[in-house]
Design a protein around this nucleic acid. Structure first.
Lengths: 117, 117
DNA sequence: CCTATGTATTGACAAACGTGATTTCAATAG
DNA sequence: CTATTGAAATCACGTTTGTCAATACATAGG
């Protein structure tokens, strides 16, 4: 696995230009990037984005039985998307009797919103 | 394939509650949702999110050769992520000699940023 | 021309994703 | 208890994704 000894730097830089500024560091720590990306990924599907939009605009909690008919999808599929949103911490749910009500957790979007602006 | 004739609505609503408010509509049109989701999806990977972060913070254009060593990834993989960002309209690129320089297109994030807040 | 260098594309592959059919769970009504 | 109903979980499927190795492409220098 020994790599060739660096005999000569050769030309290294083709033109005289130094290519770019000194060095660049991502000053969004990996951890933060992962949190942000997790949120973005959850919003990275049109259905889920609309789900969040509906829930946000509605302020209150919305029943799954109202959400399903809005999308031309099976109930299990909508349920699946809601689960993804739950896992990303974007929405919460609450059961009342037979029905399940979903709502957006506003703080979950704050960090992302701030990073974006 | 004929479904049973609907003999009787049966109980229909278990409790007396009407389940929830009248009806809810997604007032983010499908088209807009798809645009927003496309941006979110592109940001939905930690590497790409950090790439955008670096490019944004840097204001100017950054050479690929500076970006690659920031991530513990092969050059083709970084190139692949940059392509995804390009396809989503989030970044642009420019060749100068041998090098390629990338930059964020700020307007590309505006709609998403507004929707989010 | 030929060689070296920075970047992009291709091919391959495992992992994750989006979806629907089917089944399971939980809770209510009788 | 049994039957019904809303929601979630499971299974199966084709598609997309992230990654690297290898290759191709473009440009600059000899």
């Amino acid at each position: 696995m020994a790599v060739d000894l660096e005999l000569a730097p050769k030309t290294k830089r083709a033109a005289g230009e130094p290519c770019c500024e000194p060095v660049v560091y991502p000053d969004v720590a990996r951890e933060q990037a992962e949190r942000l990306a997790m949120v973005a990924k959850a919003l990275g599907d049109p259905i889920r984005l609309q789900l969040v939009d509906v829930l946000r605009k509605h302020a209150g909690k919305v029943c799954v039985c109202e959400l399903v008919p809005l999308f031309d999808l099976s109930q299990p599929t909508v349920s699946h998307h809601l689960k993804k949103l739950r896992e990303a911490g974007i929405v919460g749910s609450e059961r009342r009797g037979l029905w399940a009500y979903y709502y957006v957790i506003p703080e979950s979007l704050e960090e992302f919103s701030e990073w974006l602006s």
